[in-house]
């Protein structure tokens, strides 16, 4: 077949066909975007709006001191005049959301004073000077802290 004497239409047909392929590709891309962009994307900003809910949904481990106070009014009372009044219950007793939601099923464990107290009160030069610190070995000679100090009101 002769290649001569063809018009502009004939001589650019391959380019038009290629342009058609590109156009089809772009249409396919736009279509895919419409189908696949997740729900709620961009509602508040450049993110999936339901991701906020996902972050809220996680279960709680630490119930918070207010939850403890509902049942343990005696301990609240005992701590009232003490320096330990501001400490959250779970700082010493550990995470207790399971206990507060079903006290029968999950019991709080009494922490061991010999391990618990030094975590805060053992002497350490990096601790602020105002904070009460002792050299455990000299101070009690290994005797458990709670044989003298009541943890909820440690002042003697």
């Amino acid at each position: 077949m002769s290649d001569d004497d063809k018009g502009l239409f004939q001589n650019t047909r391959h380019l038009v066909r290629m342009a058609g392929i590109f156009a089809a590709g772009i249409v396919a891309f736009v279509g895919m975007r419409m189908l696949l962009v997740p729900e709620g994307f961009g509602r508040y900003g450049h993110y999936r709006a339901p991701a906020i809910g996902d972050n809220m949904k996680k279960p709680i481990s630490y119930a918070g001191r207010d939850a403890c106070a509902e049942c343990h009014a005696d301990v609240v009372e005992a701590r009232k005049a003490s320096k330990h009044v501001g400490i959250g219950c779970e700082a010493c007793h550990g995470a207790l959301a399971l206990h507060t939601s079903d006290p029968a099923k999950s019991k709080a464990v009494k922490p061991k004073a010999a391990q618990l107290c030094p975590a805060c009160h053992e002497q350490n030069v990096a601790r602020p000077k105002w904070f009460k610190q002792v050299n455990g070995a000299e101070h009690s000679g290994g005797e458990a802290c709670d044989s003298c100090h009541a943890p909820h009101a440690p002042e003697l």
Binding site: N55, M56, K57, K58, P59, I60, S61, Y62, G64, R65, G86, I87, G88, E90, A91, C120
Partner: peptide, 16 residues
């Protein structure tokens, strides 16, 4: 998941 329920963070809750 805590602060949106009116609780404080776990670190603040347990900071003595």
């Amino acid at each position: 998941h805590r602060i949106t329920k009116g609780l404080t963070t776990a670190c603040c809750e347990t900071c003595p």
